[in-house]
Each structure stands twice: as structure tokens, then as C-alpha cells.
Design a binder for these strands. Structure first.
Length: 329
DNA sequence: TACCAGGAGAGCG
DNA sequence: CGCTCTCATGGT
């Protein structure tokens, strides 16, 4: 453990920029880092003994929570501590480490959305039984703000795949086509998510070798359209929700659900409400028991019932349905 | 073994 | 429209 610290100190000492370091800290409250990184919105994080390791953009990152304890120093949260602490009810900090020293951490604060007033968001949720149960069960669950291309490509690969499998496909894609990124001494090699240009240049059989099956031609064609500017991902951010969704749906392999995932997880459109099989099950069971409701009708319901932060409500329902066996049926 | 997985898109009546 | 089928692969 101390050897890890000294490695980072050495790396920091070699930096020419004064004040730059390989570590920073974000004070947070109600932030369940584990649930957030493992709730099916991103597929790049691996749980290690000392936190979570992943790649954001072209940077290797390690994250872990430390909780504030009354009357004592901050205590590292092990994964075996009390459920209350693990759910992030306590105030604490997110400790972040990178492989190279930095003096500007805004990119990470933005990714983690540490500035969000979660209580304010939760207060806008409808005051009904299902929502109360989901919030109580998933306190501290957050939405990240991811890179649009990585998010889009990942969800093109997600259709009818289990989350563990999506992670594996994305990992293979990055290993084979992504640029290697700097990692601390002794850490496993890590790779950036491949650019649209690189994916478009890959052969379909090379992509299929990453176990993505029939999704390969869709990913490749979408990469080409994004790479050559036929669909401009940077423009989507400034569009009204419906137009932004329609723009994304011009891409092959992107329907309503995947478009909404990208709108919510990458662009932060709060009205986007992706309805997948889990959310559909949860909605039917919790809000329309013993009634046959079509997907279209369910979508109309989600547009009016969950308020201005419907997307957040969706993530709570999704995680609640997935984690709690009662809803699995 | 059979069924299902953070779906999309074509083909059908 | 609204429904059904297929697509590729692996987990449970």
C-alpha cells in the first residue's frame, strides 16, 4: 500500500508543473460510487481490491470512496463495510488517482457529476410507492456524464446482451483498436476507447472477432457516419430533446432505447427515459399490475409521470429492478 | 437444455 | 399501425 503511494509521489515529483499531482479528492454526500459505476450506464470500470479502475478519454483513473466518521479520521470504505456506508448515506470523499500529474480536474468532476444536488433531483420524483421504494433501495445512485461517441458505440453493442457481456465486448474492442494509455507502474495495461475513424477502418470480421455478432455492421456504419461528419455528435448537445433523439436515430443500430441512453448518459438530457426489458418489467409490475400495456403506452406514461428529471428516475427503477430479486420474477 | 440478455429493423396482415 | 421473426453469442 505504501509502495503504491511512493510510486505516485515519485511520478508527481518528476512533473515540471508546480502544484500538479496524481491525486485529488472530491467531497460528496449521497454518492454510491460502486452502484454508479456498476449500474449499466458505463462498461469500462473494473473493481479492484483498492477501488475502481477505468479509462476516461485518454486517462487511466482509479477511484475509491472514503467516508467521514464522526469523531475520527476518514475511513476507507472496504467492500465489506456496512450497507449504509456502502450506499453512500454518509458524507465522504471520492479519492481519484491518475497515472500522470494534473492540475486541472474539471474533466473528472464533470464525468462524476459531483456538483449535482441529488436531493434536489430526488425531490422532483413522483411521491408514489414504487418510486419511494426504488429511491430507498438505491440511495446515492448517480448519473455520469460520458463521452458521446464511447457511450453511443457501447450501447450499439448492448442490444440483447447482458451487462457482463457488454463489458467483455467493449474491453476487446478497446484492446484491439484503442490507443494504449499511460498506467502507473505495476498496473495492468489500459486502452482508450477507439475513435470512430479507427472503428470505421476496421474490417467487419475483425469486429466480429470481438464477439459483437450481428452488431458489427451497425457499429462500423455508425462509426463511418460519425467519423465523416454525416452525423455531428457535437451538434446534438444543442438540439431540443426530440430533435437530438431523431439525429441519433439516423445511425444504424440506434433506435428509441439506445438513443435515449446516449441522450441521458452522455448529454445529460433529463427527459430521456430509456425503456429496456428491465424498466419495462418494473413499470408494468409496479404501475400497471395485471394489465396488459403496450410499450408505446408505457413510453407515454414515462413522459408525463416522472417529472423534470425523469431520466434519473428511470435509472433508479432500472437498478432497483435489477438488484432486487422480487422484481425479477 | 431451454430461455434470456439495458434492441433494431424488416416483413407481414 | 402493431405484431412477429431474425440477427450472434454466452450466461444462468
Amino acid at each position: 500500500m505504501s509502495s503504491i503511494k511512493s510510486r505516485f509521489l515519485n511520478a508527481a515529483a518528476s512533473d515540471e508543473a508546480a502544484g500538479a499531482g496524481c491525486r485529488t479528492v472530491f467531497p460528496v454526500r449521497d454518492y454510491d460510487l460502486g452502484a454508479t459505476l456498476n449500474s449499466g450506464q458505463t462498461f469500462r470500470w473494473q473493481r479492484r481490491e483498492d477501488g475502481w479502475e477505468g479509462v476516461i478519454g485518454s486517462r487511466w483513473v482509479r477511484l475509491r470512496m472514503e467516508a467521514d466518521r464522526p469523531g475520527s479520521r476518514r475511513e476507507r470504505i472496504s467492500f465489506q463495510t456496512s450497507a449504509a456506508a456502502a450506499r453512500g448515506r454518509n458524507a465522504g470523499v471520492i479519492v481519484a488517482e491518475t497515472a500522470q500529474p494534473l492540475n486541472d480536474w474539471r474533466w473528472l468532476a464533470d464525468y462524476l457529476q459531483v456538483g449535482l444536488d441529488l436531493g434536489g433531483v430526488l425531490a422532483t420524483f413522483p411521491d408514489d410507492g414504487p418510486m419511494r421504494a426504488a429511491v430507498a433501495a438505491c440511495r446515492g445512485l448517480r448519473l455520469l456524464r460520458q463521452d458521446p461517441w464511447e457511450c453511443l458505440a457501447s450501447f450499439i453493442l448492448s442490444s440483447t446482451k447482458q451487462i457482463v457481456q457488454i463489458r467483455r465486448i467493449v474491453a476487446l474492442l478497446c484492446e484491439r483498436f484503442g490507443d494504449p494509455v499511460m498506467v502507473p507502474n505495476g498496473c495492468e495495461a489500459a486502452f482508450a476507447f477507439p475513435t470512430p475513424e479507427r472503428v470505421a477502418a476496421a474490417g467487419e470480421s475483425e469486429l466480429r472477432a470481438c464477439k459483437m455478432g450481428f452488431r458489427a455492421p451497425n457499429l462500423r456504419a455508425a462509426a463511418r457516419k460519425v467519423g465523416d461528419g454525416e452525423v455531428d455528435l457535437s451538434r446534438v448537445a444543442g438540439l431540443p430533446t426530440a430533435a437530438a433523439r431523431a439525429e441519433l436515430m439516423r445511425l444504424p443500430g440506434v433506435g428509441r432505447k439506445i438513443a435515449d441512453c446516449v441522450l441521458l448518459f452522455a448529454y445529460g438530457f433529463q427527459a430521456a427515459f430509456p425503456v429496456d426489458v428491465w424498466v419495462m418489467k418494473a413499470l408494468r409490475r409496479l404501475y400497471f399490475p395485471r394489465r396488459r400495456v403496450a410499450l408505446k403506452r408505457l413510453q407515454q406514461f414515462t413522459e408525463t409521470h416522472f417529472g423534470p428529471h425523469a431520466g434519473h428516475a428511470q435509472q433508479y427503477l432500472f437498478h432497483y429492478a435489477r438488484v432486487h430479486a422480487k422484481l425479477k420474477e
